[in-house]
């Protein structure tokens, strides 16, 4: 399970010599060597939960993310806002390396999770994803029972005892504020739940693996206001235990739930500051134009 099919790492000096560019192609990477293996387990808790340094990312042609450097602090909610196509979802998916799957993707720069370079060629991606979970824009429960959906991650991690699994499922569903609604029908299909319930199930499924960071990619964009409010409440609750990074289109939502807000525009980080400051006193004109609704 540790040796996933993984992208290959080829390094080449960039012509401008600014940084190393690495492309994600499709050859086999060298096996894990005993030396130089960096695992997140050794990571330093003093470090910020996530940190990017001069991060560039491309799906093939132009850079979709250009030179972003930011730090996501532990156990706080960080929101990424910006107009469509600004690269906020792309940046989010870089944190758990879900973009690796896309053929022709390349990057340069570094991303650290608690001090560990997550694009290190010897890093085990499944190990990374266990620690950095993700909730998607469209709720995507598996076509299995509610119980099996939540138990999926723990099972993958090798937990087999049904007593342990029961405990994890109940705890995760309680944390996701879904337990009372589904406790009597854990064995019925997850596809029978409403949209909001499905999204909370996906959150429960994500936290069942006990990650340190939860990435949320527009988790409320497909939900009605009442369901959205429940998710927002949940985010504030989860903040106590998890670092949360949320991408949202909804500026009110960002203002309500986040501690820090980053404004991205055309792949660049325009402004990153305390949420209160961004919304009341933006330093950049571009940010002001966006949050005041002049465009976007």
């Amino acid at each position: 399970m540790t040796n996933v099919k993984q992208p290959i790492w080829e390094t080449k000096e960039m012509i401008n010599g600014m940084a190393k560019e690495q492309s994600i192609a499709g050859k086999k990477r060298p096996g894990l060597s005993a030396q130089g293996v960096s695992t997140l387990a050794q990571a330093n808790a003093e470090q910020p939960a996530l940190k990017t340094e001069n991060w560039f990312f491309s799906y093939g042609q132009d850079w979709a993310i250009k030179d972003i450097t930011l730090e996501v602090p532990t156990k706080q909610v960080t929101a990424f806002i910006g107009p469509s196509g600004c690269g906020k979802s792309t940046l989010l998916r870089c944190f758990n390396r879900l973009n690796d799957l896309i053929a022709g993707a390349r990057f340069q720069g570094q991303i650290y999770a608690e001090g560990t370079n997550i694009y290190d060629r010897d890093l085990d991606v499944t190990d990374l994803r266990k620690r950095i979970g993700m909730v998607f824009q469209k709720s995507n429960p598996f076509p299995k029972s509610i119980y099996e959906n939540v138990a999926y991650g723990p099972r993958i991690s090798g937990i087999k005892k049904s007593g342990d699994l029961d405990e994890i499922v109940e705890r995760s569903l309680r944390q996701a504020a879904l337990w009372d609604e589904v406790k009597d029908r854990l064995d019925s299909t997850a596809l029978g739940l409403s949209g909001g319930q499905q999204q909370r199930l996906c959150i429960a499924r994500t936290i069942a693996v006990e990650p340190q960071v939860v990435l949320m990619d527009e988790p409320c964009s497909a939900l009605d206001p009442i369901a959205s409010a429940k998710i927002e409440e949940l985010i504030l609750e989860l903040k106590k235990d998890y670092t949360i990074v949320i991408v949202t289109h909804n500026m009110q939502q960002a203002a309500r739930v986040s501690d820090l807000t980053a404004y991205l525009w055309l792949g660049q980080l325009i402004e990153f500051n305390k949420t209160g400051l961004i919304f009341t006193n933006p330093k950049e004109k571009l940010t002001e134009d966006y949050i005041s609704g002049r465009f976007g």
């Binding site: 499944t126 994803r129 998607f136 999926y152 991650g153 991690s157």
Partner: peptide, 27 residues
Amino acid sequence: VPREIREGSLALAATQFETLWRVVIPS
């Protein structure tokens, strides 16, 4: 099989084979 389902499984630390075997082929 929707891409979201595959990504959902991968994001839960499943390998490509586990995703295929547990989610994609059953679907």
